[in-house]
Write a protein that binds this DNA or RNA. Structure first.
Ligand SMILES: [Mn+2]
Ligand SMILES: [Mn+2]
Ligand SMILES: [Zn+2]
Ligand SMILES: [Zn+2]
Lengths: 145, 145
DNA sequence: ATTAAAATTGAAAATCAATTTCAATTAGAG
DNA sequence: CTCTAATTGAAATTGATTTTCAATTTTAAT
């Protein structure tokens, strides 16, 4: 945690930006979230603790955090983006149930291997990937939906 | 083409909806597009041929076509959705260059195999998947960006 | 072919996530 | 501490998508 904040300060400074309380507060809050999150969720958490962080700052900081690789936009649901902390986390895919909207994570090294292979074959410089599988989860499937 | 239209009519009827000129016209136009497309592109094509199809109808028909499996939303760029015809097309992934925004398709049966495997393991009912890889294409990479 | 009910349409308004504007505030170099 | 440029929150704006609604069209039943 402390180390991540220090790293983030370095990242911000290197870009010639200012390391503000708001930016640190937002990153701290995000690091405390275990699940996926969206802007509303974050904003709600700040309101709860009487922090007056604005949505504008949340959006602005989220962009920086994505750019720095601290978080990733992982999927879109209900017309808006959902994020997750990606530090120390293996890339993984998301299975999204279109009925109950549950999101399950699946990590598979073979998939990462395939993607690395495409990268080399085509001489890409890979930054990130998103794999979303849509369908019905085991439970919803049983409801014969 | 004729067969697809007939099939679409059956689909529409089965849902208790009406097979309108607009719905047929939209599907016909989409079937004539080889690339990925978005709502603007479609709307522009109709304006060009003096067809007065509205955006509202385009959006409404696109939903039906996705539901019927005729097209898929394949990626999002510049804040809006991009689609492609998926009939008779193997699922495939998209490599998106974040610099020149070029989109390349990669089809790999091994990937489809992996996904089928997850489906069976977890007892999902798979409907569709989206795999997007973000990075720099060969050309943009050379510019040392 | 007529008729009538229900679905669909286009245009305009509404919604809503995300971005931008701008005056007031803050970070941080000197 | 002082000064300047960057940042902030609030409000306005943008832009994609959805909704509303009166007029039109489809289609099943006469
Ligand atoms: Mn995840
Ligand atoms: Mn494609
Ligand atoms: Zn489910
Ligand atoms: Zn490129």
């Amino acid at each position: 945690m402390e180390e991540i904040l220090r790293e983030f300060k370095r990242f911000i400074k290197k870009k010639g930006l200012k390391y503000t309380q708001e930016r640190e507060e937002i990153l701290k809050e995000i690091l405390s979230i275990k699940d996926h999150f969206d802007v509303e969720e974050l904003y709600f958490r700040f309101k709860e603790k009487n922090s007056k962080i604005s949505k504008a700052s949340i959006y602005r900081t989220l962009s920086l955090l994505v750019e720095g690789g601290y978080i990733q936009e992982v999927y879109r649901q209900d017309g808006h983006s959902h994020y997750e902390v990606t530090l120390h986390k293996t890339p993984h895919l998301h299975f999204i149930c279109i009925h109950c909207r549950e999101v399950q994570e699946i990590t598979d090294e073979r998939l990462n291997g395939l993607i690395k292979e495409y990268e080399e074959e085509r001489e890409y410089k890979l930054l990130t990937y998103h794999l979303e599988i849509f369908g019905l989860c085991k439970a919803c499937r049983r409801l014969k939906l």
